[in-house]
Amino acid sequence: MTTATKNKKSQKSSVILDYLRPNKGMPSVWCAGCGNGIVMTAIIRAVDNLGLSKDEVVMASGIGCSSRMPMYLDFSALHTTHGRSLAFATGVKFARPELKVIDITGDGDALAIGGNHFIHACRRNIDITAILINNNIYGMTGGQGSPTTPSGAFSTTTPYGNSEKHFDPCSLAKAAGASFVARTTVYHATQMDTIIQKAISHRGFSLVEVISNCHTYYGRLNRMGDAVAMLNDFKNRAVPLAKSKKMTEEEMVGKFAIGVLHQEEKTEFCDVYQSVVDKVKGGK
């Protein structure tokens, strides 16, 4: 029993309710069964397991369904312009390096409108935890195709199937210089909170891509069924990283690896900048 309680500290889910803002309109605005709520509880459990106080955590978000999340959570919050949440988060981290900055972003927010800010945050390797909730579509504005809509998939702007190639956010972040890259799904919710814990503890830019469900638009237009059917679809398509390395490319078609895909120790931006400041001040 002691080992079980060690592994699962947040056994009492009433702890989760302590992290919600009072009188901020729960139930949430999200559709019934939306994965954003599952990600929200996973973040709360991760923060609770790490023992961080509410004042130590800053949440930044842009525009989109997922970006409504900081309004419900009782952390310092920053609801910013579309795609620019990482730029604001960089400013917060730069001014107050002792705070833990979590950036909530969607696939369109991070990769289309804010693609520029995303790659440059990766390049700087600043200590921000970016949680990218990938539902393959623009959910809030009516189901337009996003940069992660797979080739051939239907959306309201691609009624005959998407003819473009889609982005892989994890490969993009790794190539741009992020030092922690992980992928998980909303079905693997307990794995998600351990990954988010690792990402928050990691010093450097950490990207957690969470594959989420938008059954209202993506599921309906692509005949994937309701929230439960999409969650079971993630269960069938997700392959643990160790197993995916043994599989051939043909076997991996339509599937994706989950787990911590990339982790390395790199110099962090705030540390480098502080050393520059010390050097200049010492020279005077």
Partner: peptide
Amino acid sequence: CTICWVHCPDLAITSNY
């Protein structure tokens, strides 16, 4: 097993384990 409230998107299920 905690599956129900871990996967509840609306925080509607609470446990008193």
